Amino acid sequence: MASNNHCRFSVGQGDPRQFWVAGFTQRRVLLEGWSYTPLANRYEMANSSVPTRCRARTHRCCRPNDAPFTAPPVATVGRLRARYGVRWLVVDIRRPHDPTGIARVAELRLATGQVSIYRLR
């Protein structure tokens, strides 16, 4: 799965202590809530950084994860599926996303409240 919501809203710079997609779905998510991972902890210790300020933009999966939500051409989504095994997109409609573009590459399976779930074609 990939989600356009990998940081909490409460912190202006992005707070990576967010796990609701993985928690509710009980599935692996490409990029979400990395603050408590061993890799993030090692990075934070080596660079004297604060866990809540570790930004997603430095993670190698950030650009591939975010692309289907803001610029979803078929090739981009195909690479995401082939390289990372992503089959579903979980869209937080409060976050930047392109519903028309997503609809061209994925089928809407559920829309409820502030979340839409798409299955990649």
Score class of each variant (00 low, 15 high):
1 M>V: 14
81 R>E: 03
121 R>C: 07
47 N>A: 04
108 L>E: 14
106 A>K: 13
57 R>E: 09
42 R>H: 02
77 V>F: 08
82 A>W: 00
59 H>W: 14
89 L>A: 11
68 P>H: 11
101 G>D: 05
19 F>L: 02
22 A>L: 01
63 R>P: 06
8 R>N: 11
38 P>R: 01
79 R>A: 07
108 L>M: 13
39 L>N: 03
88 W>S: 05
88 W>P: 03
39 L>S: 08
85 G>A: 06
69 F>I: 10
43 Y>P: 00
8 R>A: 15
22 A>Y: 02
113 G>F: 10
115 V>R: 09
64 P>S: 09
19 F>I: 00
107 E>A: 15
109 R>L: 08
49 S>L: 06
121 R>S: 10
8 R>F: 11
111 A>M: 11
19 F>A: 02
22 A>K: 03
62 C>V: 09
81 R>M: 01
120 L>C: 03
97 H>L: 07
13 Q>D: 06
101 G>E: 05
14 G>Y: 10
37 T>C: 05
26 Q>K: 07
56 A>H: 02
105 V>W: 08
91 V>L: 13
104 R>M: 12
108 L>H: 08
25 T>I: 06
85 G>I: 07
48 S>F: 02
18 Q>R: 10
5 N>H: 15
60 R>E: 15
40 A>L: 04
88 W>G: 01
117 I>R: 08
16 P>D: 07
106 A>V: 12
47 N>W: 06
1 M>T: 15
121 R>E: 07
4 N>D: 11
21 V>E: 06
10 S>Y: 10
86 V>W: 09
55 R>F: 05
52 T>F: 03
41 N>V: 03
16 P>C: 11
89 L>F: 05
88 W>D: 12
117 I>C: 12
108 L>C: 14
83 R>M: 04
23 G>I: 00
3 S>Y: 07
55 R>D: 09
90 V>G: 01
22 A>M: 03
119 R>M: 07
18 Q>P: 00
53 R>G: 04
89 L>Y: 06
32 E>Y: 06
120 L>D: 00
56 A>E: 04
8 R>P: 00
35 S>I: 01
104 R>K: 14
35 S>R: 00
51 P>M: 03
113 G>H: 14
30 L>K: 13
10 S>C: 12
49 S>W: 03
111 A>W: 11
117 I>S: 06
103 A>C: 07
18 Q>Y: 07
39 L>M: 09
69 F>D: 15
64 P>T: 12
117 I>A: 11
102 I>F: 10
118 Y>K: 11
3 S>E: 08
23 G>D: 14
49 S>R: 08
92 D>V: 09
